[in-house]
Design a protein around this nucleic acid. Structure first.
Length: 717
DNA sequence: GTTGCACCTG
DNA sequence: CAGGTGCAAC
């Protein structure tokens, strides 16, 4: 254990002496098993009780004085000294030892809590907290004879303390919970204390994944350049220090909760000097003043004095709490604290040891100019056309998902490094798929992405994309897909006759909506094989629901639908085809949409399109026919459909909005026939029959004409 | 059971 | 324009 900790400490740079000292103190005091820690406490206290204390442990004895000085020099508001942990646990250890050996080992920091000490010496609120700690309240502790009479009472106390511990460990907002329990005396707490609380709150509310990502980023930096280890380690140390500090604040909070419980349970406590010393603003103010005049000599002297005072006091009053309850409380505290501490330390060491091992997916994704090709026929995706120069989407929903992902994946037990690593390693396949779509986006690629492309994207391109190339040739959407990777781009250069909707495709691709944050695309560790190949043979509904659950799948679905799916250009083409055929067969559709890989979903969608076209068409016809009847037109032959008529304008506006297509005369004839059919049916009162339109449909469906051959080659437009 | 269609709704 | 539903034909 010592070797382990020494190794860790040796990693720290000399320039981080302050951090190193804190580390040393905290790590040795907190993370070493009780037996060992007790020994260390011995040396520690020896050192504290006398500046010339024996040097059993060089590192310890060298570190601790400096550290203690740092502690005292720290601003009170920061409460970021490592002594909190050590004090708390050391006291527990001491109590245990006192139980077993019936004598005390008093550390200097503990001695600083003497209620008898001069008030100027209250340089740290933590110390006063300690002073009023029930464990330290020897003078008011129950006598051994009272054990049985108050055991229930103390058990209730213990239950409350454990509950508080649980709440604090589990809820970042536990502070609020605690506030409701605060007594009025707490309201007299100093502003400094409140500030510290707020800081705790902020720290605790920091999303865990954020901390992870921060640390991961520093890891990544170290991984990218091991020669920057100095700077990286500085960052590491800084972050680790922050983590330790936040942990210490948490512990301090715990102490205060602990104290509050006992104060509430024992009002007598509140009347005692120690409690008053803790809550009395005057005293706290004095402590603040003292803080500013503190200096090394002063505190070294004070340490000795306080130590002696506290020891004397403790000797007089004896051990404060009955042993059984103390033991239970001690165990509960140790368990909860060590759990939290271990958690933090595991992360710390994991970050140190895994430096450069791997990049987190987040980093890769952040640097990935992701393309999200939208599903065909979705006009909404066309409406927002962000460029790649724009910042990444700030969609809160996406952020949430990304957060969930990171919380879900990295909230796991930090000690389970194997799983975490495997998760990371499994992720690279997620990147090349997206990067493979982006080459036409003239954006420099990070080196690692190029490597990933070589490893993962090639199979996809060769087997899947070339298949489409061979099948649809130059007219394939894919063949002209401007976002294809380099080999494909070379195979289908821009000089090739671009297909019907190449322009639309291009605009769609280059404007590929970034509604999915890159990070969210790494959601789920699904392998490429599961997603890319074979072709998607799933129902559209399933695909969509899958896409909703997993943006990565969504990306791939989009990718495939881009190949197999329908685009706004296809929609436009279908509308123009409606001028020739109102009831196109599936074969006609397949013939005139050669660049679409048909499946059930696509066919249904195309049929649905024409169904919608017909719906609008018949509605317009019925409306015009009824209007003619209202207008008093008695002869069907008086009803004509010309390019100037209102009916035609409405239809043209619907199917040929841009008015860049010359509507065939035959369509005018068919429209006129349809109008007459409606007129006759309505005039004959057939519209009372629920299925009166069926006869009309039967007539109109026979008026379909062949679609011009030019529609087969999309490049005709 | 699947497919195509009309109808309704949002 | 898409989703859902019901119907009819196969």
């Amino acid at each position: 254990m010592h070797h382990f900790l020494s190794t860790v400490l040796s990693i720290l740079q000399p320039k981080d002496e302050k951090i190193k000292k804190q580390y040393t103190h905290v790590i040795y005091d907190v993370f070493i098993p009780p037996k060992v820690s007790m020994n260390l406490s011995l040396s520690d206290q020896n050192m504290h009780s006398s500046n010339e204390g024996c040097l059993e442990d060089d590192k310890h004895n060298v570190m601790l004085p400096c550290f203690r000085r740092n502690l005292y020099e720290e601003p009170l508001a920061s409460y970021s000294n490592g002594s909190i942990i050590s004090q708390l646990l050391r006291k527990t250890i001491q109590n245990k030892r006192a139980l077993e050996e019936s004598h005390f080992y008093l550390s200097g920091s503990t001695g600083a809590e003497s209620s008898q000490e001069d008030q100027c010496s209250v340089s740290s609120k933590d110390s006063t907290v300690e002073a009023s700690s029930p464990i330290g309240q020897a003078s008011t502790g129950p006598s051994p004879e009272g054990d049985s009479s108050i055991s229930d009472h103390l058990q209730a106390k213990r239950a409350r303390v454990e509950n508080i511990i649980r709440v604090m460990a589990g809820s970042p907002n536990s502070r609020q919970h605690g506030e409701s329990e605060r007594s009025d005396t707490d309201l007299r707490d100093t502003r400094e204390a409140r500030e510290a609380y707020r800081e705790n709150k902020r720290k605790q509310r920091l999303p865990q994944h954020q901390e992870h990502s921060n640390a991961a980023q520093s890891n990544r930096k170290a991984g990218n350049s091991s020669r920057d280890s100095c700077c990286t380690k500085d960052e590491e140390c800084y972050k680790l220090k922050e983590q330790l500090q936040s942990m210490q604040r948490l512990l301090r909070q715990l102490q205060e909760k602990f104290l509050q419980v006992y104060n509430q349970e024992d009002p007598d406590y509140d009347n005692q000097d120690k409690t008053e010393a803790y809550f009395d603003p005057d005293i706290l103010g004095k402590s603040s003043e003292t803080r500013y005049i503190s200096n090394e000599d002063y505190f070294e002297d004070k340490d000795i004095r306080i130590d002696n005072e506290y020891r004397d006091q403790m000797k007089v009053v004896g051990f404060p709490i009955n042993r059984r309850d103390n033991q239970n409380l001690q165990d509960a505290l140790k368990q909860e604290l060590s759990k939290a501490v271990n958690d933090c330390v595991d992360r710390v060491f994991k970050k140190i040891s895994s430096t450069g091992l791997d990049r987190s997916p987040q980093q890769r994704m952040c640097s990935t100019p992701e393309l999200q090709i939208s599903r065909g026929g979705n006009r909404k995706s066309q409406q927002h056309t962000p460029t790649f120069d724009q910042p990444q989407s700030e969609d809160p929903a996406v952020k949430t998902r990304s957060s969930e992902y990171y919380e879900g994946s990295e909230n796991q037990n930090p000690t389970d490094q194997t799983e975490a690593l495997s998760l990371v390693i499994r992720k690279p396949p997620a990147v090349p798929l997206m990067t493979s779509l982006t080459p036409t986006v003239k954006r420099p690629y990070p080196v690692h992405q190029a490597a990933f492309q070589l490893n993962y994207s090639t199979p996809l391109h060769e087997s899947h994309i070339l298949e489409h190339l061979l099948k649809y040739g130059g007219h394939s959407n894919l063949g002209a897909l401007p976002c294809m990777p380099t080999p494909i781009d070379q195979a289908s250069p821009d000089s090739v006759d671009l297909p019907w909707d190449t322009l639309a495709m291009r605009s769609k691709v280059t404007s590929a909506h970034l509604s999915h944050h890159p990070r969210s695309s790494s959601l789920g560790a699904v392998t490429v094989d599961n997603l890319c190949l074979p072709h998607v043979k799933i129902e559209c509904g399933e695909l969509q629901s899958m896409a909703e659950r997993n943006p990565y799948i969504s990306l791939n679905i989009s990718f495939h639908l881009k190949i197999e799916g329908l685009t706004p250009s296809h929609l436009k083409k279908a509308k123009l085809m409606f001028f020739y055929t109102r009831y196109p067969s599936s074969n006609v559709l397949k013939t005139f949409f050669p660049d679409v890989k048909f499946n059930r979903c696509i066919t249904s969608q195309l049929i649905k399109w024409f169904s919608n076209f017909r719906e609008f068409y018949y509605i317009q016809m019925e409306k015009s026919a009824r209007q003619a009847i209202v207008d008093g037109i008695s002869d069907v032959k008086d009803m004509t459909v010309s390019r100037d008529s209102e009916l035609f304008r409405a239809l043209n506006m619907h199917y040929n909005k841009a008015n860049d297509f010359h509507v065939p005369d035959r369509f005018l004839e068919v429209a006129e026939i349809t109008l007459h059919e409606f007129y006759n049916a309505i005039s004959a009162g057939k519209d009372s029959d629920p299925s009166w339109k069926k006869a009309i449909y039967k007539v109109i469906c026979k008026l379909d004409n062949d679609v011009p051959e030019e529609f087969k080659t999309s490049s005709c437009f």
